[in-house]
Computed example of a mutant assay.
Amino acid sequence: MTKDKLLPTFYSLPEDLVWTELAPGNRRAVLSARPELMLVAFSFEKGAVGALHSHPHTQVSYVAEGAFLVTVDDVTKTLRAGSSFMVAPNLLHGVLALERGLLIDTFTPCRDDFISR
């Protein structure tokens, strides 16, 4: 990420967010980003899936709303609002929204693939 790709320092939700549809009932909005760290919102409708995947970034996720079935490295747990989970680099992970929900994820380093070109 170059300096010209840095996102604004402040956001006023929701009017400043740019949502990207990922799959039916699943969308993402980058909240803040710097080369070393980023903050991303993921919105899910009930039954929507965040497919199993892995990436070289460390990820910490906070369940801001709803309930999710979360799988990290072959361990699956139900997490509700106020819970969080951490994903070490390259671990397989994914979620299923048990009800409408919102995850707030941090990634280090920045997920350049999430930044609009």
Rank of each mutant, 00 (worst) to 15 (best):
M1W: 09
M1T: 11
K3E: 14
K3Y: 12
D4M: 09
P8K: 02
T9H: 11
T9C: 10
T9Y: 11
S12C: 13
S12Q: 15
D16Q: 09
L17P: 08
L17T: 10
W19R: 01
T20Y: 06
L22E: 13
L22P: 01
A23W: 10
N26T: 15
N26Q: 14
R28D: 08
V30G: 07
L31P: 07
S32K: 13
M38E: 07
L39D: 06
A41F: 15
A41N: 14
S43Q: 15
E45Q: 15
E45I: 04
G47V: 05
G47R: 05
A48S: 15
V49H: 09
P56V: 03
V60C: 08
E65F: 01
G66Q: 00
G66E: 00
V70H: 01
T71Q: 08
D74T: 14
V75R: 11
L79I: 01
R80P: 01
A81P: 01
G82N: 02
S84W: 08
S84N: 11
V87S: 04
L92K: 13
L92W: 09
V95R: 04
L98E: 11
R100V: 06
G101T: 09
L103P: 02
D105S: 02
T106C: 10
T108G: 13
R111S: 05
R117T: 13
